[in-house]
Amino acid sequence: MTLQWTAVAFFLYAEIAVNLILCIPFISAKRWRSVFNLRIWNWLSPYWNKCFFTMIMVLIVLFLDALREVQKYSGPQPMQDANVNPTVYDHVHMKLFRSQRNLYISGFSLFLWLIMRRVVTLLNQVAVTLETTAGLQAQMDSAVKASKQHQEDNLTLKQALLDEEKSMFAKNQQLKLEVEKLTHQVKAAEDAVHKSHAEVEAMKRQAKGLAHEYDRLLTEHHQLQNLQSAEDKKDQ
Protein backbone atom coordinates (compact mmCIF):
# COMPACT_ATOMS: atom_id res chain seq x y z
CA MET A 1 0.00 0.00 0.00
CA THR A 2 1.40 3.38 -0.98
CA LEU A 3 1.85 6.21 1.50
CA GLN A 4 -1.23 8.13 0.42
CA TRP A 5 -3.50 5.11 0.72
CA THR A 6 -1.94 4.20 4.07
CA ALA A 7 -2.76 7.71 5.27
CA VAL A 8 -6.32 7.39 3.92
CA ALA A 9 -6.69 4.01 5.66
CA PHE A 10 -5.53 5.48 8.99
CA PHE A 11 -7.87 8.42 8.40
CA LEU A 12 -10.72 5.93 7.86
CA TYR A 13 -9.85 4.08 11.09
CA ALA A 14 -9.75 7.41 12.94
CA GLU A 15 -13.16 8.34 11.52
CA ILE A 16 -14.62 5.00 12.60
CA ALA A 17 -13.22 5.48 16.11
CA VAL A 18 -14.52 9.06 16.38
CA ASN A 19 -17.98 8.11 15.10
CA LEU A 20 -18.14 5.20 17.54
CA ILE A 21 -17.15 7.53 20.39
CA LEU A 22 -19.76 10.09 19.30
CA CYS A 23 -22.42 7.35 19.28
CA ILE A 24 -21.66 6.15 22.83
CA PRO A 25 -25.10 6.22 24.49
CA PHE A 26 -24.11 7.17 28.05
CA ILE A 27 -22.41 10.42 26.95
CA SER A 28 -25.17 12.99 26.71
CA ALA A 29 -25.50 15.67 24.05
CA LYS A 30 -24.97 18.35 26.71
CA ARG A 31 -21.63 16.79 27.61
CA TRP A 32 -20.59 16.77 23.96
CA ARG A 33 -21.68 20.39 23.62
CA SER A 34 -19.49 21.35 26.57
CA VAL A 35 -16.61 19.51 24.87
CA PHE A 36 -17.28 21.27 21.56
CA ASN A 37 -17.30 24.63 23.35
CA LEU A 38 -13.73 24.28 24.61
CA ARG A 39 -11.31 27.06 23.75
CA ILE A 40 -9.27 24.90 21.41
CA TRP A 41 -12.29 24.34 19.17
CA ASN A 42 -13.06 28.05 19.23
CA TRP A 43 -9.50 28.66 18.13
CA LEU A 44 -9.77 26.05 15.35
CA SER A 45 -13.24 27.09 14.20
CA PRO A 46 -12.00 29.64 11.60
CA TYR A 47 -10.01 26.85 9.92
CA TRP A 48 -12.58 24.11 10.37
CA ASN A 49 -14.65 24.77 7.25
CA LYS A 50 -11.56 25.11 5.09
CA CYS A 51 -10.17 21.85 6.45
CA PHE A 52 -13.51 20.12 6.00
CA PHE A 53 -13.95 21.10 2.35
CA THR A 54 -10.27 20.43 1.63
CA MET A 55 -10.59 16.88 2.96
CA ILE A 56 -13.75 16.41 0.89
CA MET A 57 -11.94 17.49 -2.25
CA VAL A 58 -8.95 15.24 -1.47
CA LEU A 59 -11.17 12.24 -0.77
CA ILE A 60 -13.23 12.88 -3.90
CA VAL A 61 -10.04 13.02 -5.99
CA LEU A 62 -8.78 9.80 -4.41
CA PHE A 63 -12.18 8.17 -4.90
CA LEU A 64 -12.24 9.14 -8.58
CA ASP A 65 -8.63 7.92 -9.01
CA ALA A 66 -9.54 4.60 -7.42
CA LEU A 67 -12.63 4.37 -9.60
CA ARG A 68 -10.48 5.04 -12.66
CA GLU A 69 -8.08 2.29 -11.62
CA VAL A 70 -10.94 -0.15 -11.13
CA GLN A 71 -12.32 0.62 -14.56
CA LYS A 72 -8.81 0.38 -16.00
CA TYR A 73 -8.07 -3.07 -14.65
CA SER A 74 -11.58 -4.45 -15.11
CA GLY A 75 -11.71 -3.48 -18.80
CA PRO A 76 -11.60 -5.99 -21.66
CA GLN A 77 -7.99 -5.30 -22.75
CA PRO A 78 -6.28 -6.17 -19.44
CA MET A 79 -8.46 -9.26 -19.13
CA GLN A 80 -7.45 -10.45 -22.59
CA ASP A 81 -3.76 -9.95 -21.75
CA ALA A 82 -4.32 -11.79 -18.47
CA ASN A 83 -5.92 -14.75 -20.20
CA VAL A 84 -2.93 -14.98 -22.57
CA ASN A 85 -0.19 -14.71 -19.92
CA PRO A 86 -0.75 -16.27 -16.43
CA THR A 87 1.81 -13.93 -14.88
CA VAL A 88 -0.06 -10.93 -16.23
CA TYR A 89 -3.29 -12.49 -14.95
CA ASP A 90 -2.06 -12.46 -11.35
CA HIS A 91 -0.68 -8.95 -11.74
CA VAL A 92 -3.93 -7.64 -13.22
CA HIS A 93 -6.05 -9.21 -10.47
CA MET A 94 -3.69 -7.86 -7.82
CA LYS A 95 -3.98 -4.36 -9.30
CA LEU A 96 -7.77 -4.78 -9.56
CA PHE A 97 -7.96 -5.90 -5.92
CA ARG A 98 -5.85 -2.94 -4.76
CA SER A 99 -7.85 -0.46 -6.82
CA GLN A 100 -11.13 -1.88 -5.43
CA ARG A 101 -9.68 -1.73 -1.89
CA ASN A 102 -8.61 1.86 -2.46
CA LEU A 103 -12.08 2.63 -3.87
CA TYR A 104 -13.76 1.25 -0.74
CA ILE A 105 -11.31 3.03 1.58
CA SER A 106 -11.74 6.41 -0.10
CA GLY A 107 -15.51 5.97 -0.47
CA PHE A 108 -16.06 5.01 3.15
CA SER A 109 -13.67 7.75 4.29
CA LEU A 110 -15.68 10.33 2.36
CA PHE A 111 -18.95 8.91 3.63
CA LEU A 112 -17.83 8.81 7.29
CA TRP A 113 -16.34 12.30 7.00
CA LEU A 114 -19.75 13.65 6.00
CA ILE A 115 -21.48 11.49 8.63
CA MET A 116 -19.14 12.71 11.37
CA ARG A 117 -19.85 16.36 10.58
CA ARG A 118 -23.58 15.63 10.52
CA VAL A 119 -23.39 13.78 13.84
CA VAL A 120 -21.55 16.69 15.46
CA THR A 121 -24.13 19.13 14.10
CA LEU A 122 -27.00 16.97 15.35
CA LEU A 123 -25.42 16.63 18.79
CA ASN A 124 -25.13 20.41 19.03
CA GLN A 125 -28.73 20.81 17.87
CA VAL A 126 -29.95 18.19 20.35
CA ALA A 127 -28.05 19.91 23.18
CA VAL A 128 -29.52 23.30 22.23
CA THR A 129 -32.97 21.74 21.96
CA LEU A 130 -32.59 20.14 25.39
CA GLU A 131 -31.49 23.44 26.91
CA THR A 132 -34.38 25.24 25.22
CA THR A 133 -36.78 22.52 26.35
CA ALA A 134 -35.47 22.76 29.91
CA GLY A 135 -35.96 26.54 29.83
CA LEU A 136 -39.44 26.18 28.37
CA GLN A 137 -40.26 23.50 30.94
CA ALA A 138 -39.13 25.81 33.74
CA GLN A 139 -41.23 28.63 32.27
CA MET A 140 -44.19 26.28 31.90
CA ASP A 141 -43.82 25.08 35.50
CA SER A 142 -43.64 28.70 36.65
CA ALA A 143 -46.69 29.56 34.54
CA VAL A 144 -48.60 26.54 35.92
CA LYS A 145 -47.65 27.52 39.46
CA ALA A 146 -48.71 31.12 38.84
CA SER A 147 -51.95 29.87 37.26
CA LYS A 148 -52.69 27.69 40.29
CA GLN A 149 -51.94 30.63 42.57
CA HIS A 150 -54.28 32.83 40.51
CA GLN A 151 -56.98 30.16 40.67
CA GLU A 152 -56.60 29.94 44.44
CA ASP A 153 -56.73 33.74 44.69
CA ASN A 154 -59.82 33.79 42.47
CA LEU A 155 -61.51 31.15 44.61
CA THR A 156 -60.64 33.12 47.74
CA LEU A 157 -61.94 36.31 46.15
CA LYS A 158 -65.13 34.58 44.98
CA GLN A 159 -65.70 33.19 48.48
CA ALA A 160 -65.09 36.63 49.98
CA LEU A 161 -67.49 38.19 47.47
CA LEU A 162 -70.07 35.49 48.23
CA ASP A 163 -69.74 36.12 51.96
CA GLU A 164 -69.98 39.85 51.32
CA GLU A 165 -73.08 39.28 49.21
CA LYS A 166 -74.67 37.22 51.97
CA SER A 167 -73.77 39.89 54.52
CA MET A 168 -75.13 42.66 52.27
CA PHE A 169 -78.29 40.63 51.65
CA ALA A 170 -78.80 40.18 55.39
CA LYS A 171 -78.15 43.90 55.96
CA ASN A 172 -80.59 44.79 53.16
CA GLN A 173 -83.25 42.58 54.69
CA GLN A 174 -82.66 44.16 58.07
CA LEU A 175 -82.80 47.63 56.50
CA LYS A 176 -86.03 46.70 54.71
CA LEU A 177 -87.54 45.60 58.00
CA GLU A 178 -86.40 48.81 59.66
CA VAL A 179 -87.76 50.85 56.73
CA GLU A 180 -91.10 49.06 56.98
CA LYS A 181 -91.13 49.65 60.73
CA LEU A 182 -90.29 53.32 60.26
CA THR A 183 -92.94 53.54 57.54
CA HIS A 184 -95.53 52.17 59.95
CA GLN A 185 -94.34 54.57 62.63
CA VAL A 186 -94.48 57.51 60.19
CA LYS A 187 -97.96 56.45 59.15
CA ALA A 188 -99.04 56.18 62.76
CA ALA A 189 -97.50 59.59 63.45
CA GLU A 190 -99.31 61.06 60.44
CA ASP A 191 -102.55 59.56 61.66
CA ALA A 192 -101.90 61.03 65.10
CA VAL A 193 -101.11 64.43 63.55
CA HIS A 194 -104.30 64.29 61.49
CA LYS A 195 -106.23 63.36 64.61
CA SER A 196 -104.59 66.20 66.55
CA HIS A 197 -105.42 68.63 63.75
CA ALA A 198 -109.02 67.43 63.85
CA GLU A 199 -109.17 67.89 67.62
CA VAL A 200 -107.59 71.35 67.29
CA GLU A 201 -110.16 72.31 64.66
CA ALA A 202 -112.92 71.01 66.90
CA MET A 203 -111.54 72.96 69.84
CA LYS A 204 -111.26 76.06 67.63
CA ARG A 205 -114.87 75.67 66.57
CA GLN A 206 -115.89 75.10 70.19
CA ALA A 207 -113.90 78.12 71.34
CA LYS A 208 -115.46 80.20 68.59
CA GLY A 209 -118.93 79.05 69.68
CA LEU A 210 -118.11 79.89 73.30
CA ALA A 211 -116.86 83.32 72.24
CA HIS A 212 -120.15 83.97 70.39
CA GLU A 213 -122.11 82.77 73.38
CA TYR A 214 -120.04 84.94 75.69
CA ASP A 215 -120.61 87.95 73.45
CA ARG A 216 -124.31 87.23 73.40
CA LEU A 217 -124.49 86.87 77.16
CA LEU A 218 -122.41 90.02 77.59
CA THR A 219 -124.79 91.89 75.30
CA GLU A 220 -127.79 90.62 77.24
CA HIS A 221 -126.07 91.56 80.47
CA HIS A 222 -125.54 95.09 79.21
CA GLN A 223 -129.08 95.25 78.07
CA LEU A 224 -130.32 94.07 81.45
CA GLN A 225 -128.13 96.61 83.20
CA ASN A 226 -129.48 99.37 80.98
CA LEU A 227 -133.07 98.29 81.67
CA GLN A 228 -132.45 98.23 85.38
CA SER A 229 -130.89 101.62 85.30
CA ALA A 230 -133.84 102.98 83.43
CA GLU A 231 -136.29 101.53 85.92
CA ASP A 232 -134.32 102.92 88.83
CA LYS A 233 -134.50 106.36 87.29
CA LYS A 234 -138.27 106.06 86.87
CA ASP A 235 -138.75 105.07 90.49
CA GLN A 236 -136.96 108.20 91.69
Score class of each variant (00 low, 15 high):
I105W: 03
K176W: 03
L67G: 00
T183H: 06
G75D: 01
Q100A: 13
K95N: 07
V70H: 00
L136D: 15
S142W: 04
E178R: 13
T87E: 12
E165S: 15
N102L: 01
N124W: 15
Q149P: 02
H91D: 14
Q137I: 00
P76L: 08
K148C: 14
L155Q: 09
V179Y: 06
G107W: 07
Q174P: 01
I60D: 11
K72G: 05
E165V: 14
V119S: 10
A82V: 06
Y73R: 06
Q100D: 11
Q149T: 07
T132S: 08
F169W: 07
T54I: 14
A143G: 10
T129N: 09
R101I: 02
Q174N: 05
F97C: 08
F108S: 00
L161A: 12
V84S: 11
V120F: 00
I115R: 09
I115G: 06
R68M: 05
L155R: 02
V144W: 05
Q173G: 07
V186S: 12
M140S: 14
K176A: 12
R101Q: 09
S106P: 06
F169Y: 12
E131V: 03
V84T: 05
N83M: 08
S99P: 06
Q80G: 06
M79H: 03
S109G: 00
P86T: 03
G75M: 04
S142N: 13
T133I: 00
L123G: 01
V126A: 05
K145T: 10
L157V: 09
S147I: 04
A127L: 12
H184Q: 14
H93W: 11
N172C: 00
T87C: 08
M116A: 15
A82M: 13
N85A: 04
A143F: 02
Q137F: 07
A188L: 12
E131N: 11
Q185M: 10
K158P: 05
Q149R: 04
L136A: 15
V186M: 03
D163S: 14
L136S: 14
L103W: 11
N154C: 11
H150A: 14
L103R: 03
L130D: 10
F97K: 03
S167M: 05
I105Q: 01
K171G: 03
R98S: 02
L64G: 00
T156Q: 15
K72M: 12
M55H: 09
V58N: 05
D81S: 10
M57W: 14
N85H: 07
Y73E: 04
F169P: 02
V61H: 06
D153E: 12
E164K: 10
L59W: 03
V186E: 12
Y104N: 11
T87G: 07
Q125I: 15
T129I: 05
K166P: 06
T121W: 04
T133V: 00
R118P: 10
N172M: 07
F97G: 00
Q71R: 05
V119A: 08
Q71Y: 03
Q77L: 14
L162Q: 10
W113P: 01
Q139A: 14
V92Y: 04
A82H: 01
D141S: 08
S99Y: 00
F97V: 09
Q77Y: 09
T133R: 12
Q80I: 13
T156V: 13
G107R: 02
T132Y: 11
A143E: 11
Q149H: 02
V126I: 10
V58A: 08
L103Q: 04
V126Q: 01
L123K: 05
Q77S: 12
L67R: 01
L155F: 03
I105V: 07
L110W: 02
N172D: 11
M57A: 15
